[in-house]
Nucleic acid binder design. Structure first.
Lengths: 336, 336
DNA sequence: TTATATTATGGAACCGTTTCCAATTATAAA
DNA sequence: TTTATAATTGGAAACGGTTCCATAATATAA
């Protein structure tokens, strides 16, 4: 491997000059620049990234920390983020924060420290699995962080989130508008603010229309296919029957549809099902799923851009407002 | 940030000694070791990873290069890989090789070089999008590579693949056994060897039973939901009708089911559908999808382990044989 | 006790960059 | 032409580890 000194010698210039042409910073005459570029090409010179990081304290790497491997933080979303980073020659290191969360009380902080120590210029914290307090503490020590699908009031400009309350409300309203009054629920976990907001929005919409959900018709899920399936089967045996089922995410909704169908209920004629997320799979359930669109990829892109601005002094345009939208497909029957 | 010299000074030892206790290599008396550990704790010392890499030429990072963001290289699979790496304190950098594949003839090689130059000890090459020749060439320059879901004959011990021919054959046989003779196909791309092998296996199974597929009933797909949907609609209008549909992957199968159902055909009573992949979603289609299990995660784990052995001289156990298995669910009708 | 092998230890040299400052050269202004 | 100013250049020092070698301390054998 050729080093900067080899290049300098071949081009008959100083090492500082070579460094300047590599980085593009500082002034170098065109003539010299050509000489150096020629030498670099001849030697197939590639800068050693460890040496660069050591001396510049810049890593050209950002970390993505998240816990839920489910839902829409799909490979596709990662790819979107990578594509934002690529023009800046920055790579992405991902960590599944969940992996040691059982062992240690503040395991999340540990896994983050690992990431940071490894050498990240910045961090995307995905999801709301970390208490606000811890996030604020982290930000004090390591300000280059950005929140994806979570918000902390004191960090508005670093929060990329979505109005889950409004989305929940719209979901509720939509069922009402379609004449549904007997409604069942498969929830997710309630350990995150967005889950609570979505739920509250939904319930408030019903309340505002004097519709109340019977306790028996609320099934505590966890966003998985499995719980969606089990939940639907459970609800089917409950006392007050229902005409519509709202699921906390599309995965639950899909498997609920599967469970209902296999029990002979027709969607949407017997029971309507409403999802939440708009995974790309959701157009292809049977029947296609009506759902709330959560623009994760857009959010991820903006989060990445903000982080680039933060870390590398860029000035990329960043979006903070993500439209709440209900995607009408064919899983809801209009009772009116 | 405390450095090794700060630690040495506080513990009143030499820097070499500190380095020895950090790495655990070389001999240090227990007494000295305790002193040094105490000093490290007091100073909250964290080794600078760039400096470590620079001087040791070890990066504690491996790269994952792949092109298809679809299919089963899901976040879950990435997580599996990460978990194999974690005990060795190695992180994973992913690259979507696809992103610049349009611009440049050997863009794949370029994006790999990027990864390597960034500082990887080894590389997982996922999928068969790179010609064997290029892979062999790459291996010459950079031997720490491992192939996931692809094989190169000269690199048997580095290839983690699956008997797609056999799997295709079993799929074909299964349809035959269930009495199907009028069979339609939604294929994937044929640009990779596994796609071809799967297809050939399937066709051979039919041939061996004197069943032949009518040209009209072969639809060229691309593994996406979209093409599966369109393909199913297309096939429905074709002349020889069919009783079974084999899709090159579960995504196509799912959306084919959706298309067929929405056209009033009942699965499996009117048409049987067979998938390929066994995504975790596939238990929850309507009806649940009968499919071939492709143990990507197991393969990924073994690939990761082999790479660790290669890069870090470990001796982890590695599996090369991945069972071909048909998962019977409810999307196939037995005509006998 | 002495000779010898073994274990511990300190620290210079090195890894390959960036950065800064002093020195040189080119350019513009007077 | 001279002077002031700006652009260009070289290279030492620094970044924070690892490694190796010479040396010191200790253990073992004779």
């Amino acid at each position: 491997m050729a080093t900067i000194r080899d290049v300098a010698k071949l081009a008959d210039v100083g090492i500082g000059t070579v460094s300047r042409v590599i980085s593009g910073k500082g002034s170098v005459s065109q003539k010299t620049r050509d000489k150096v570029n020629g030498a670099m090409a001849a030697l197939k010179f590639i800068p050693n990234s460890s040496a660069q990081s050591l001396s510049s304290k810049r890593f050209n790497t950002i970390g993505l920390w998240g816990t839920k491997s489910s839902g829409e933080m799909s490979r596709a979303t990662l790819t979107k983020i990578e594509r934002e980073l690529q023009p800046f020659d920055v790579s992405l290191i991902t960590t599944d924060g969940e992996r040691n969360s059982t062992n240690h009380p503040n395991a999340s902080r540990l896994s983050i420290d690992n990431l940071v120590n490894k050498g990240c210029d910045g961090l995307i914290i995905w999801g709301s699995d970390m208490p606000d307090f811890d996030i604020l503490q982290l930000e004090k020590e390591f300000p280059n962080i950005v929140l994806l699908n979570n918000k902390v009031d004191a960090m508005k400009d670093k929060s990329f989130t979505f109005d889950h309350y409004k989305a929940g409300y719209i979901a509720g309203e939509y069922l009402i508008k379609n004449g549904h009054k007997d409604i069942a629920l498969i929830t997710g976990w309630f350990d995150t603010s967005d889950a609570n907001e979505r739920h509250n929005g939904f319930i408030d919409a019903l309340k505002d229309n004097n519709v109340f959900i019977h306790d028996n018709l609320i099934y505590r899920g966890d966003y998985t296919f499995k719980k969606g399936f089990e939940g639907a089967k459970y609800l089917l045996n409950q006392k007050p029957s229902f005409t519509a089922l709202f699921c906390a995410n599309d995965q639950s909704a899909m498997s609920a549809i599967s469970a209902l169908s296999s029990n002979g209920v027709n969607i949407p004629n017997d029971i309507s099902v409403l999802g939440y997320d708009n995974m790309n799979i959701s157009s292809y359930t049977t029947p296609p799923l009506t759902t709330i669109n959560v623009p994760v990829q857009k959010m991820a892109i903006s989060a990445a851009r903000k982080l680039i601005n933060l870390c590398y002094g860029a000035a990329l345009e960043v979006d903070y407002n993500f439209e709440v939208e209900l995607i009408e497909r064919q899983s809801i029957l209009n009772l009116n």
